[in-house]
Design a protein around this nucleic acid. Structure first.
Length: 198
DNA sequence: CAAACGATTTTCT
DNA sequence: GAAAATCGTTTGG
């Protein structure tokens, strides 16, 4: 069951980040299907969030897609190597987004191993934003792709995650954001091995 | 037009 | 634990 547009256009990015835990991210690259359950996310609350690319209302070629209506992908290159996959949320012109940091592989594990150039599956296969994007075949040319289409989308498979299984902590790699680096905008599944380390 | 810098991962010591 | 890899985007001259 694909998640509907109304899920993404909700104005509470923290609520969406929390609810995405336990959902299933699906990619279909030229008919090759890979899926995984989302185990870790981070919220980026637009213009009021120093850690966000759209802080202060900055609007550039790269961040333009964040200003779209919720329900599209925002993928960008970090450190010249890694493609980071985000879900754009909120209404038109409010640049909120949720970074998907880790998933637990479900289908297409062989494909993921090939893409990641690994022989055996372990927690490093899809734990970490750059790793999961590579495993699912996501790259920056997918930025702006609608999550209501057939290439990249998210499903609700009825996996139930109780509130106490979800931990809220500070975000990672955003020390430069001053006080905003202390906000509990990172959510992850307690006891999951598929959560980025650090 | 030139320079600096990451919402990171991997590898080597 | 430290350091390298690596390039598009952003910023400053």
């Amino acid at each position: 069951m694909k998640i509907p547009e109304t899920f993404y256009t909700d104005t509470n990015v923290l609520k969406i980040a929390r609810k995405l835990i336990g959902k299933v991210l699906v990619t279909n690259m030229d008919g090759v299907i890979t899926t995984g359950m989302i185990t870790e996310t981070e919220a980026y609350a637009g213009i009021t969030d120093k850690a966000s690319h759209a802080y202060g209302g900055r609007r550039t070629t790269r961040t333009e897609v964040m200003y779209a209506r919720g329900g599209v992908a925002y993928v960008y290159l970090c450190y010249g190597i890694h493609h980071l996959f985000n879900v754009v949320t909120n209404i038109q012109d409010v640049p909120h987004a949720v970074l998907v940091r880790a998933i637990a592989p479900i289908e297409g594990i062989e494909t993921m191993l090939t893409r990641r150039n690994k022989r055996k599956a372990n927690s490093t296969l899809t734990a970490g934003p750059g790793s999961l994007s590579a495993a699912l075949g996501i790259n920056k040319q997918h930025t702006g792709t609608s999550l209501l289409g057939e290439t990249i989308f998210i499903e609700d498979r009825g996996i139930k995650i109780s509130a106490k299984e979800i931990v809220a902590k500070t975000r990672i790699g955003v020390d430069y954001a001053g006080n905003d680096a202390l906000l509990p905008y990172r959510f992850y599944l307690r006891n999951s091995e598929y959560v980025s380390k650090y």
